[in-house]
């Protein structure tokens, strides 16, 4: 464990969406601030900064994490994945993203990147959830715009027709 000193900006390297990035952070800098203001990505949204809303959700080494409750230095050396990783390099939307578009699963879109990351990790564990199970999982996120209907339909449609569960059948 490296020695960290307050008021000192420490180098922090991540594998962010498959690419190596580096920046500097004081020990107290939040990962959400680091990603947005030091690295400059635009998908890690902050809605509460106290771990309730889920807007800042990213995957750290594949684990669903709240970036607002993580210090940047804690993620040093880790693989961090955000919503920028979901579409292909040409910007073609993934099947899950297309399902969100088709079912109007987003309005302002502020909650959406975090929700997509939770769903991505969840469906790896559980490729074909029931609606109740899915709603239970989504209850870890707040969306103030949509009433959740479109996103629930989107995920169920995706699982039925494109996801790992669909292929397995």
């Amino acid at each position: 464990m490296p020695q960290l000193n307050r008021d000192v900006r420490h180098p922090v390297s991540l594998t962010l969406n498959g690419k190596k990035v580096q920046g500097h952070a004081e020990p107290r800098m939040l990962l959400s601030d680091f990603l947005t203001h030091e690295i400059g990505i635009t998908s890690c949204h902050v809605g509460c900064e106290h771990g309730v809303c889920g807007a800042c959700t990213v995957l750290i080494d594949g684990n669903v994490s709240r970036a607002c409750l993580t210090f940047a230095v804690q993620a040093d050396g880790a693989a961090v994945d955000t919503a920028e990783s979901l579409a292909d390099d040409e910007g073609e939307l993934s099947a899950l993203q297309q399902a969100f578009k088709k079912h109007h699963g987003l309005q302002c879109g502020y909650c959406t990147p975090g929700i997509l990351m939770s769903i991505t990790a969840y469906l790896k564990e559980k490729p074909k959830p029931t609606e109740d199970e899915l709603r239970d999982m989504l209850s870890g996120h707040l969306c103030r715009c949509t009433g959740y209907v479109g996103m629930v339909r989107a995920v169920l449609d995706y699982c039925e027709n494109s996801g790992a569960g669909a292929k397995a059948e």
């Binding site: 947005t36 949204h45 919503a83 920028e84 502020y110």
Partner: peptide, 19 residues
């Protein structure tokens, strides 16, 4: 009609005021 806004928002590329 599906929304023209969505691709930008879904890919996390929308620049909100903090960006």
């Amino acid at each position: 009609v599906e929304r023209v806004e969505d691709a930008t928002l879904l890919t996390g590329k929308a620049q909100f005021s903090d960006h």
